[in-house]
Computed example of a mutant assay.
Amino acid sequence: MNSLTNLALMLCFTVTAARAQTDTLQVIPPLQVPFLKISGYIETYYSYDFNTPENNTRSGFMYSHNRHNEVTLNLGLINATYNNDKFRASLAIMAGTYTNANLAAEGSTLKNIYEATAGIKIFRNSNLWIDAGIFTSHIGFESAIGKDCWTLTRSISAENSPYYESGAKLSYTSVSGKWFVSALVLNGWQRIQRVDGNKTIAFGHQLTYKPNAKVMLNSSSFAGNDKPDNDKRMRYFHNFYGQFMVNEKLGIIAGFDIGAEQKAKNSKSYYSWYTSVFIVKYSINKASISARCEYYADEHGVIINTGTDNGFKTFGYSLNFDYTIYSNVVWRIEARKLNSKEAIFTKDGNATKNNAFVTTALAISF
């Protein structure tokens, strides 16, 4: 009997001590770092190309969602940002088929960096910043992060202009927030490391005007040489787009790009290319539908080299459906078709002018 009493007392003491210990642990505040934010993004997808490419990789000018008939990861990234209104920094590491395709020319470790920047505010009472490092492109309205784009896949113009850049930029946002302007010094046209033999730097600008919540107009440019100095050819490129919210449900994006590059070193004549894209989006509650039409003309193969007489002259259109399952979870499906003037695509070993494909994706941000 005494043994049972002693055992009961010991159990009561143990439970009481454990409860006291638990209560003590609960009042210890979690570790927090002010101004630091950790976020992430994962986008998985499945795409079926009706031309059924033998190597399961879609056309060489497509870098996002470019794998055929397999469930895989387009982009997964983890991002840490620090901003205390005096200086700021960001570091984002990524993986996925987008990384493998679009950063294949970069070093083995550099190609997994989505962003790595450090910046400082120049004047305390003015929103003027200087940032340096690896950052997302100042060109275009589409990015590698699908949830921020109106369509599941990227436009041809977005796929064949810079997604990312490296260098330094000076940027200013007006007090009203209506104007944003930046000047950039860059390592090249979508480069982290400059091309071997290239000793020149490139330049760019961005000017954005938001007169109200429904309208945004953007002008961006690039000027520089992206080849070794013994084959130096200056490239000039300008991107312009406008985004218009007609009402709470209906939105429109219209964009136009034009570029020119010297035909040869010291040449006074240029090869040019241009592209246009038009997107309409209609939203109802958690669902939205987007329709896109686009045209890309690069007759001399400056950006997209096909080796054909008429070069790359391609019209495309797509229809996209999105459903927001939760506030940070989106399911998307898109049907898209490309029609070229030349037979630049391949189907069953034969050249064809058409390419159709469907893609579905699940994107989660946190």
Rank of each mutant, 00 (worst) to 15 (best):
V246G: 07
G255Q: 13
H138P: 03
A223I: 10
A361C: 08
N266I: 00
A18V: 13
T173M: 03
I130Y: 02
L362P: 05
Y98P: 02
A287H: 09
S171N: 14
G76P: 01
Q21Y: 05
V329G: 08
P30K: 03
L170F: 09
N125G: 03
T117S: 06
H68Q: 09
L170M: 10
F357C: 04
D298L: 05
G311V: 08
T72L: 07
N305L: 08
P228A: 07
A264L: 03
P162K: 09
R194G: 14
T360R: 07
S340R: 02
V358L: 12
I303C: 06
M10L: 11
I145V: 15
F87P: 04
Q243E: 12
N339Q: 08
S365G: 11
V302K: 12
P211M: 03
D298M: 06
V195P: 04
L103A: 13
A105V: 05
L36D: 05
R19L: 09
E342A: 03
G119S: 11
I130R: 05
Y323L: 06
D23K: 03
Q21K: 09
I145W: 00
G204P: 04
W273G: 09
L77A: 13
I28T: 10
Y163D: 10
T5W: 01
A17Y: 02
T99A: 10
S267K: 12
Y48E: 14
T57S: 11
S174V: 06
A351H: 07
I364L: 12
L103D: 13
N218Y: 00
L184P: 05
M94G: 04
S59Y: 05
A95L: 01
A183N: 07
F244V: 10
Y236I: 07
K214T: 12
M234S: 06
T360A: 10
N125A: 07
A104V: 05
N51W: 05
S47V: 12
T200H: 06
S59C: 01
E159C: 04
V175T: 15
E54H: 11
N328G: 03
V185R: 01
W129M: 07
L25R: 14
R19Q: 13
L36E: 07
N84A: 06
V246A: 15
L184S: 14
T360I: 06
G316C: 01
A80P: 02
G349M: 04
N218R: 06
V181G: 12
K178H: 07
I201W: 12
K286R: 14
S171T: 15
G76N: 03
V195R: 10
S182M: 08
T153L: 01
F278P: 03
R194A: 13
K249Q: 15
D226Q: 02
M10P: 00
T151R: 04
T151V: 09
W331V: 12
I201G: 09
H238G: 05
N160D: 08
A118V: 14
N350W: 00
